[in-house]
Design a binder for these strands. Structure first.
Lengths: 265, 265
DNA sequence: GAATGCTATTCAATATATCGAATGGCCGAC
DNA sequence: GTCGGCCATTCGATATATTGAATAGCATTC
């Protein structure tokens, strides 16, 4: 009975890992990902507060694993193509992205919107795992791998609506969000309640001015949603009566997906 | 004068890394990528010859970095969405993929072929970094992140043709390749020579039976090609006089790309 | 043209990540 | 219901990865 709620003890932040090289490696990869140009050893070490020699050893190991590529001429490092390989494995392994792709393509074409399928990581964030652009659309595009804070936009309202989170935790996360037109917490909670009732979340110009986003949740298991589908369009291109229709389409696909990925487990 | 040829001493294989945790982490990631289902600690440790406790520490570090995801219920591990994020950074960072995408789309549409842009990693392999599917094509598709041994197919002939490699090394690599219809080494060398003269590589049904592949090299710097574009089609759908035309289109795009990515550096 | 600041890299001492055995918990067998 | 085997996990001893200073190579400065 000690662990019935299934969560690991929340206070147990891994203060000091038993494999610090991996945290360092990951930090290096993220740094190289953020940088537009290849970086030398010293800039990397300085930025990450690493001892240069240690940093060098980590980099060499990463190069050996082809996660980082190294230009011998300039002695500069950048991300390696091995990452693409692993990402491909990820997409292969997770059935959700493959199942969702044709569905979001269909909705995108039918309604002329941009559709995104995301994976939800608790209250931390959600990550785009499939993206569909409407044919002659404006550039409302995201890429696979983009990440968003969990409670933002329409998807955020779905997440808040379908998980039993304490108000205190929600508020703490909510306060850190960046919106073009920030709603008050109370306003937002009302919209979350609405999302719970209607089965889809709606963000009308709050997240990005002039842009309307709809989202519906997908459940792998009962409880919190594991994934979601969202549809994005310029607000003025969405006629008022198109919204319920679009919402129905999203919800329909989400229900289908929920069945498909839960029966697989 | 000691290092004028710019290459690191070839015999210096990093026998034992100074950051073994990273090699272990990478092996775990690849293993999880290959597996269809999430794996428990013990299967991972056994398969990779790791001490379970060490493996656990590495896994925990990877989970903390979101490169691996962990199901507390079943205590199983699988690839995490953080990899997608890094891969997105990769695509962002490398101008080649972005520049090549519209070009291969155009060629794919014009000739009804499948086009792939690849990054070349020496004599080891090449990796698909952008893929374009022709509209109503058969399923001759690859995915971004797929890897191929360096000397295979039409791209392999380009690599062999444009680098000054010793015959001994070439032969060693060549002998390990898998073809549907393997050419003899002499036959293949003749085709490599032809690729050098004509500026593009051709594989007519050797790599995959019934499939013809063309490829042309892209040079970031003088010497060995850094990237390549390839076009793939069912052999019977390619009329004989379409091949030179397709080759010209590929070569034209490759020259353009060579200028674009070299002037950037 | 010499010197200075930077770089990447090596090396020996030590803090520590790794190992292997021991623990406790879970599930299925009998 | 009890036992047995497998699992994930902890823990102390030790091999070793990490550290910080010292070395060597370049490019730019004066």
């Amino acid at each position: 009975m000690a662990d019935t709620d299934g969560k690991p003890p929340l206070g147990t932040v891994v203060r000091e890992s038993k494999a610090p090289a991996i945290a360092r490696a990951s930090a290096i990869l993220r740094l190289l990902g953020r940088s537009d140009i290849p970086l030398g050893l010293q800039p990397i070490a300085r930025k990450l507060d690493l001892v240069p020699s240690t940093c060098l050893y980590v980099l060499r190991a990463l190069v050996a694993e082809e996660l980082v590529s190294f230009e011998p001429q300039t002695k500069r490092y950048s991300l390696g193509s091995g990452l693409l390989s692993l990402a491909r494995s990820w997409l292969h392994r997770d059935p959700f992205a493959g199942l969702a792709q044709p569905m979001i393509d269909e909705i995108a074409n039918r309604f002329g919107v941009t559709c995104v399928a995301v994976e939800i990581s608790g209250l931390d964030r959600f990550t785009a795992v499939a993206v569909s652009k409407a044919g002659g659309n404006f550039r409302l595009s995201t890429e696979v791998g983009s990440r968003f804070p969990a409670l933002i936009s329409a998807t955020g309202r779905c997440i808040a609506a379908n998980g039993a989170f304490e108000e205190k935790r929600l508020r703490a996360r909510f306060d850190k969000l960046r919106w073009d037109d920030p709603p008050s917490f109370e306003e937002w909670q009302a919209q979350v309640a609405e999302a719970r009732e209607r089965g889809f979340g709606l963000d009308a110009g709050h997240y990005i001015a002039g842009v309307t986003v709809l989202a519906a949740p997908v459940f792998k298991a009962a409880g919190a949603p594991s994934h979601a589908l969202s549809a994005t369009a310029l607000s003025r291109t969405l006629t008022p009566d198109a919204i319920p229709e679009l919402a129905d389409a999203l919800i329909g696909k989400c229900n289908l997906l929920s069945r498909q990925i839960s029966q697989a487990a």
